[in-house]
Amino acid sequence: MSPRGVAIPDLRERLFAAAERVVARDGAAGLTSRAVTAEADCGKGVLHTHFAGLDEFVAELVLDRFARSAGQAEALDEKVGQATVAANLQSVVLALLDALPPAVVGLALTRPAAALRTREGFHGGAPAFDVIQHAFTAYLQAEQRGGRIAADADTATIALALVGTMHHLLMTRVPGRDEEPETLIGRLLAVLLGGAEQPPME
C-alpha cells in the first residue's frame, strides 16, 4: 500500500483502472469506495479526498473514458490512405469498445446521481458520441477526397450508423455471451461501405 501522505503518481487513472477491474469482477453492485481503493492499493480515504463521493467518481470515470475514446477516433486522420478504409474503421471501433466497457458505461445508468453528473458533463462540452461521429465523418470524407471512397457515398450516414451500433453494443452487449464485436463490426462495415470503398489503384 502506498505510504500515508505520499503523493501517488497518476492517481486518477490508477483509481479509474481499479474501478474497472472491480466492476468487471464483481459487477456494479460490488463498486464501493473501499473496494476501489483496496484494488488500487491506496489508503481508504484517498477516493473521497479527491472526489466529492462515489457518484462524482463514477461520473468522472465515464467522462474520462469518453474523452479518451474521442481522442482515439480523432486519430483516424493519421490512417488516411493506409491499409483499407474498412480495416481502419474496424480497428478504431474495436478500440473504442475496449475503452468503453459496457460494465463501466452501465455504472452511470445504475446510479441516478452519477447519471445526472455525467449528463451535465456532456452538456458542458465534454466529448461524447457526437465528437466520435464527427471524427468518423471527417475521416471518411478525407478518404473520399483521396479517391478511396466513391464520390457519391453518404459519409455522414455511414458514420452515424457506426456510432449508433457502438451505442447499442455498449448498452446491450454481454461479453462472452453475444457475438464477438470484431465479427459484427466486420459485417456491418461490409454492408455500410458496400460498393463505396474503391479498390486500390494499380
Rank of each mutant, 00 (worst) to 15 (best):
G30D: 01
G30E: 06
G30H: 12
G30N: 10
G30T: 09
L31G: 08
L31Y: 07
L31P: 11
L31S: 09
T32F: 08
T32C: 03
T32Q: 00
T32W: 09
S33I: 15
S33R: 14
S33H: 15
R34L: 14
A35Q: 02
A35L: 06
V36P: 10
V36G: 11
V36Y: 05
V36A: 05
V36R: 04
T37E: 00
T37A: 00
T37G: 04
T37D: 03
A38R: 06
A38N: 00
A38M: 01
E39A: 14
E39V: 08
E39W: 03
E39D: 07
A40L: 02
D41P: 07
D41C: 15
D41V: 14
D41L: 15
C42A: 08
C42M: 06
C42D: 07
G43T: 09
G43M: 06
G43R: 12
K44I: 05
K44Y: 04
K44D: 03
G45I: 09
G45P: 03
V46W: 01
V46F: 03
L47F: 02
L47W: 03
H48N: 12
H48R: 07
H48A: 12
T49D: 14
T49C: 05
T49N: 10
H50W: 07
H50F: 04
F51V: 07
F51S: 01
F51T: 05
A52W: 13
G53A: 13
L54H: 08
L54I: 14
L54F: 11
L54A: 13
L54S: 05
L54T: 02
D55H: 12
D55F: 13
E56D: 03
E56K: 01
F57C: 03
F57R: 03
V58F: 13
A59N: 10
A59M: 02
A59G: 07
A59H: 01
A59L: 15
A59K: 01
E60Q: 15
E60M: 12
E60D: 03
